[in-house]
Design a protein around this nucleic acid. Sequence first.
DNA 1: GTTGAAATTAGTACGAA
DNA 2: TTCGTACTAATTTCAAC
Lengths: 222, 222
Amino acid sequence: MTEMSSNSGSGGGATGRIGIGLELDATHLKILEVLRDNGRVSVSALAERVGISRANAYTRFEALRADGVIKRFTAEIDHQRAGLGIVALIFVTVRQQMWRQFRAQLAQMPEVEYCAITTGQHDAMIQVRMADVAEVHAMVTERLANIPAVKATETVFILDEVLRRPYVLPSDRGRGAQRRPAPSASPEPEQGQGQGQGQGLPLGKMRFVGAAEGRAALRDES
Amino acid sequence: MTEMSSNSGSGGGATGRIGIGLELDATHLKILEVLRDNGRVSVSALAERVGISRANAYTRFEALRADGVIKRFTAEIDHQRAGLGIVALIFVTVRQQMWRQFRAQLAQMPEVEYCAITTGQHDAMIQVRMADVAEVHAMVTERLANIPAVKATETVFILDEVLRRPYVLPSDRGRGAQRRPAPSASPEPEQGQGQGQGQGLPLGKMRFVGAAEGRAALRDES
DNA sequence: GTTGAAATTAGTACGAA
DNA sequence: TTCGTACTAATTTCAAC
């Protein structure tokens, strides 16, 4: 369960089209906003908060669900109180030609909360939640490292989870600090922080990390 | 909104106690299991699935909520269809003594879905969701890099989100592959793990990454 | 901790704008 | 499409056991 395949149209031929089905308008986004903070609101209350009629709310709600925009409803828990207060990230290097096996093994690991294939130095990032540090160690050494597909791992612990949003919406933009003026590179007029970057983009600070060797080829296999 | 502070009792004096309030029994966990997959079930249906009476379900449900074990209910959406199909991880090195500012700035960024303080080479990991790759670039160079607290960043893109579970529960263990024998640091009779783990654990494969310089001191400031 | 009945609310199905 | 209303079914609450 809980398998995804968001980006990258899985190797197939057709381009991963965006916006199949529903065309989301402002009202849809508003519904998703309400649902993000209270997934258990009644559709009546939802209609009220969004400012539409009940019937309309039912229609749209059902449409969002049927169209797959809303995948499911769930809860957010306090992991500490639930007994799993230790979080770790495990960066995995996967052996070529063994992605399918790697994925299969992952599905067998209930302690894995999140797994994503990434560009950069490693191939995948796994987030696990455990009761104590020793369990993380055991998991990495006894379970993960025993998977033939796993070539190497690198583990870091999460000291504090500063922020977590269930999801981000396009309508969220503009609520925070300054909004991005133009689509691409636009020079910000001021910003007097003598940090050294003279209003230009401190590109030296940034470092994009490309995909590891042979990554592209591997995607097809899975 | 959506601020957390799970691990590491925030600098204060009292040890971060585990299990304040509710002592979760098997029934509580079962409730959380049901709620994970269907956050909108009626309490009646919940009671039925868990195998307890309605009133009992209401009591426990309310207790979990009031005690903070359940923090909120929310939805899971298809980000691609919602218009934000690009995911990136930004690993941030934070300047000493500027954690408070770093956190404050983060709260101003609605496109940030997740942020955690980590051990290892970097200080924090930020997950953002954007409409396209250019937006990620703009976000890193124009917004993040302009924060004085940010010393350096390293960005990787997520090619595929293989797996996401809303949360992991202690009761999940044992459903996957082989189970770990003992809970914690219980003296295992066999397996003379002098340090090099007796039964052939490929420890060479693993690499734990410690905290960056001056990390411990920084925690107090935030 | 459980069961059963009353009160409230939610979900559905219409016609009208 | 969206809205408003009436109808039906379900849920929540509250009582006693």
